[in-house]
Design a protein around this nucleic acid. Structure first.
Length: 334
DNA sequence: TAGGCCATCTGGTCCT
DNA sequence: AGGACCAGATGGCCTA
């Protein structure tokens, strides 16, 4: 029964509890829904007649009203005078504004974080929680890369990125990296779909990707098979494909994706449909460098599908230039 | 329509 | 006293 009256508690007692109940409102919501001024007026209507700022004590009325209740201890409630109400109201308004500003700052920081994530889309933003999860995975994956001193295998790297992400986010990331999400969701290696020799031989191979908004114009492996070994050596080399060469599962019989010519479709700026804009507007965060040499002044890579860029290239470039620094740069450029 | 996500308000706690 | 931070509550919006 003991009450400690902090300033907040004071607010509660003065305004919330006393006022809306006395006013006859059914809930705090009703109280909230009132216009501030109206609410204030409502509160004012139940003020006692002491409208000066004397703040005289009235703490005895509870115990006196109910003889069975133990006498309340602690600081005594103060009457809600007009002056106190005004101060409370002003404090609350200021506090709300500060809180809004604080949350906006937090959201801005979150937006900045989104922009350095491997998959960034203005139109399909990652949720807050998924942004944090992806960031955690991203850091984890980069750390692993640094620790092992090896360039990451493409699939396992993306698997790390997608660990613990929701299905939609996994789809988003997988779509962004043009890899079917299913392969990312298998817990056990033996459950993973296997890539057959055909894929290694250079044929496009698509994982089944229900729900994946990836357009049928290539996938991760297709990319990797076209990558220059000196840049993505770990991904295009036998070490990368060796674990995926079993043909225990029938190959995907869908339409073959046209092999991507990474070096050939950079500057396409075709007209695009709003639908494409909405779904596939995954933008590179950092200027990419052509695998075949410098591509102007850090110009974007561009796939045959407008704006569907090739994040994996961008990402590795971004690691070396912006995130990991010279260490990874040396790794990938040796 | 249920569920997810978000912005906002609010009160509690801690700190200066 | 007042600000920062936090967490709960709530309502709006959107999507499957």
């Amino acid at each position: 029964m003991t009450k400690t009256y902090s300033k907040s508690k004071e607010m509660t007692d003065l305004c919330s509890t006393q006022c809306w109940m006395v006013e006859g409102l059914s809930s705090q919501d009703e109280f909230k829904e009132q216009d501030n001024d109206q609410a204030t007026l409502g509160i004012m209507s139940v003020l006692n007649n002491d409208e000066d700022d004397n703040e005289t004590d009235d703490g005895e009325e509870e115990g006196e009203a109910d003889g069975e209740k133990p006498k309340r201890r602690g600081p005594k409630k103060k009457k809600m005078t007009r002056a106190r109400l005004e101060r409370f109201k002003a404090r609350r308004v200021k506090a709300n504004a500060r809180e809004r500003t604080r949350m906006h700052g937090l959201n801005d920081a979150l937006d900045n974080l989104r922009r350095v994530m491997p998959c960034y889309s203005k139109t399909q933003k990652l949720s807050k929680i998924e942004t944090l999860r992806l960031a955690r995975n991203y850091i984890w994956a980069l750390s692993e890369t640094l620790e092992t001193g090896q360039s990451p295998e493409g699939k396992s790297f993306i698997e790390m990125l997608c660990k613990g992400l929701s299905q939609p986010t996994t789809n988003l990331v997988a779509g962004c990296l043009q890899l079917g999400p299913q392969s990312l969701l298998y817990e056990k290696p033996e459950e993973k779909p296997q890539v057959c020799e055909a894929a290694i031989a250079g044929h496009a191979f698509s994982y089944q990707s229900p729900g994946l908004p990836s357009p049928p114009y290539g996938n991760m492996d297709t990319h990797l098979l076209h990558l220059k070994s000196h840049t993505f050596k770990g991904m295009a080399e036998p070490s990368f494909v060796s674990h995926t060469t079993d043909c225990t599962t029938p190959p995907y019989e869908g339409p073959l994706s046209p092999p991507l010519s990474i070096s050939g479709n950079f500057s396409l700026k075709q007209e695009r449909s709003p639908e494409l804009d909405k779904t596939y507007a995954f933008m590179a965060h950092y200027p990419a460098v052509s695998l075949n040499g410098p591509q102007g002044h850090g110009g974007h890579f561009q796939n045959t599908i407008p704006r569907y860029e090739i994040p994996i290239e961008m990402n590795y470039d971004s690691y070396s230039h912006h995130i990991v620094g010279s260490q990874l740069s040396a790794l990938f450029n040796e």
